[in-house]
Design a protein around this nucleic acid. Sequence first.
RNA 1: GGAGAGAUGGCCGAGUGGUCGAAGGCGCACGCCUGGAAAGUGUGUAGAUGCCAAAAGUGUCUCAAGGGUUCGAAUCCCUUUCUCUCCGCCA
Length: 373
Amino acid sequence: MLQIQLIRENPQQVIDRLKVKNFNAENIIHEISQLDVEIRASKKLLDDNLMAQNQYSKEIGQLFREGKTAEANELKAKIVDLKLAEKKYQEILLQKAEEIQGKLVLLPNLPHSSVPHGKGAEDNEIVYTEGDASDFDHQVMTHWDLVKKFDIIDFDLGSKITGAGFPVYKGKGARLQRALINFFLENATENGYTEIQPPYLVNEDSAYATGQLPDKEGQMYYCAIDNLYLIPTAEVPVTNMYRDVILKESDFPVKNCAYSACFRREAGSYGKDVRGLNRLHQFDKVEIVTIEHPDRSYETLEKMKTYAMSLLTQLGLPFRVLRLCGGDISFTSALTYDLEVYSKAQQRWLEVSSVSNARDYQARRGQMFRLIV
RNA sequence: GGAGAGAUGGCCGAGUGGUCGAAGGCGCACGCCUGGAAAGUGUGUAGAUGCCAAAAGUGUCUCAAGGGUUCGAAUCCCUUUCUCUCCGCCA
């Protein structure tokens, strides 16, 4: 969520920046500014009212101690009127606060100045390429044929036990999967990331705080009886460790990595996108999260990008790095790099990693408008 | 699942209706003392947010969370969450 102070002080700047994301904020910013003024005025009225009540209450206590019951009762009568007014102010304030909150959450994060203009994937900027993707002239097999040939990943067996999108890794397939997880975790640890083993189910508060709710409700598996959600990424539990936590400046940077199985319903996916391992309901991922001082956030993003690239280099995979354009970047991100590896068999680039800077937008998400008393 | 006890500042811990945003201690910061340090000693030490151009100042809110009683709640009542103890259940 964007800070109200930012909108208060630089409304035009916010509008201009959001244009890069093809978001027309003109009207909504105007409405928010208007509400902000009204809220602060109402808040003043309410505070003054409460101050008067507090003062009278103190006097009443004093009078009772002195035995002046009659005078105390007079003051009590005054407070009755104040209370009526208070209730009215409270209602107005609550209503306006809800209104402004409802508008603030509609605003995406401001994109960084380096984010290219554009509508979709075709406008993303290729910032780096490594390795030669056209290297394989020999006959290539798709991974779904390969794993069948060697019997290391069994999609049919997964369908039998659970359903489509839940593969069974067998023998060397299971070992390869475990080795890759280990490879990523070991590298992360060597690079200063503290390993976390998070819960795979999270409560409603956590799902809201990292933005899965209410947007992606239908995309998460849900245990109704306990009101818990299966995590779509380790980002959810790991980031939520810091929910409602105020870090000291000396705590920076906080660096965590976590392996988890990830669960996604992927409702609406179809066709070749879901062949083989391309899109699964359960898959494995190693996540890295850094919480850093605002002054160093972009510098840190570059470091994380470079770190992710080094993993692909170590694995010897040809890859490229994209800077996502305004139309393709996510709602909460200010700057995102996607790392893509080329699949000769599928003849397309496949996203294997994505690094984003959410700045303070994520940190302020779930922080409600704090004018309500 | 049942019964009981509890949740107070960075930490420990007092506080059962007003003078309590909260004793005391620890920790921390600054000063005194000292050649320097320790010990001793003095002072200070929560956060969010509003008003004000800003500072100074000042208002409001916060004693797990939410609601209620009252002129007034850390304190009384209700609900929820979490922790501990006992009983039950446990693929």
